[in-house]
């Protein structure tokens, strides 16, 4: 086992000794901009050892990214002569707003490049000395998740019903709410009013102004489990302006979340 002192040196040796190639990747024909962005992000997410990836769009190299451990460390755009713009980095661990801004700038750059490209290829180089270890980087899986969510074409109600179909064995009663319309979809109608009251309380707690529940997102899934011998957990799922309120079998939280991601087309990773 490597101790604390030797681990960085071993890591550096592994990084230097490894091939820089990514395997055969001669390019891929794309049908949508989102498909191209997903391809680029997947390449970055799969990069564990420190590498500089140069992406070509329709044969012209336009984007250069430094990546390590599935994190985007910095990126630059390349002009037609191959000159790079000033790198946009994610150096400052203490400034989460700056890191989010840099991530948003990368998403915008990538969307612009991919919207015009029908073919994307990539090559890789060693990262220049100077170091990856001091840079915080940004988790590329998070960018992928945002992209997948933004690219989803389903209507929210259809997604909610698809989730209900998948989770029917785990859910006791459920209603779907849109605006003023409450639509009982499973269980006794008498439960609908109580579910609505309970879920309104949970939503207000989730949305309280003093301490946001994370950045604004398109969907949220909240499951709470009671103390003691409580029969059911309570589930609140929200996509855009549609709500699914449900009681679910106790202790089914992990399974429900996995089914939820599956219904959205984003399968949970298997356990490591």
């Amino acid at each position: 086992m490597a101790g604390d002192a030797t681990e960085p040196a071993l890591w550096q040796a592994l990084t230097s000794a490894s091939a820089y190639g990514l395997g055969a990747d001669t390019g891929r024909t794309l049908t949508t901009g989102a498909e191209g962005a997903a391809l680029v992000l997947r390449r970055l997410a799969d990069t564990m050892l420190g590498r500089r990836l140069i992406f070509a769009f329709d044969g012209a190299e336009r984007l250069r990214c430094d990546a390590e451990m599935g994190r985007l460390l910095a990126f630059s755009t390349l002009d037609s002569s191959g000159a790079a713009s000033a790198p946009n980095g994610f150096e400052n661990r203490d400034d989460s707003a700056a890191i989010e801004n840099a991530a948003a700038a990368f998403e915008e750059t990538l969307a612009g490049l991919c919207s015009r490209a029908s073919d994307i290829s990539v090559r890789s180089e060693a990262l220049v000395a100077g170091g990856t270890s001091t840079r915080a980087g940004f988790p590329v899986e998070r960018l992928l998740a945002r992209l997948q969510s933004a690219d989803a074409e389903d209507e929210p109600a259809a997604r909610l019903r698809r989730f209900l179909d998948k989770a029917q064995d785990l859910i006791a009663s459920a209603v779907i709410v849109q605006g003023d319309t409450v639509d009982p979809v499973k269980g006794p109608e008498a439960d609908a009013g109580a579910l609505f009251r309970v879920s309104s309380d949970l939503l207000s707690r989730m949305n309280a102004p003093e301490g946001a529940a994370g950045a604004p997102t398109r969907w949220r899934l909240l499951i709470v489990a009671g103390v003691g011998q409580v029969q059911n957990d309570v589930l609140v799922a929200e996509i855009d302006d549609h709500l699914l309120l449900a009681t679910a079998r106790a202790s089914a939280m992990p399974a429900l979340r996995a089914l939820w991601l599956d219904a959205l087309g984003t399968a949970a990773r298997p356990r490591a």
Binding site: R142, A145, R146, Q148, S149, M206, A213, G214, A215, T217, R218, W219, R220, L221, L222, I223, V224, A225, G226, V227, G228, M253, R257, W260, L261
Partner: peptide, 16 residues
């Protein structure tokens, strides 16, 4: 008098 034992809040950017 009863509170909750567990809570999970999942969004597209993470799971708390």
């Amino acid at each position: 008098e009863m509170g909750m034992m567990r809570a999970m809040l999942a969004t597209e950017t993470g799971c708390q």
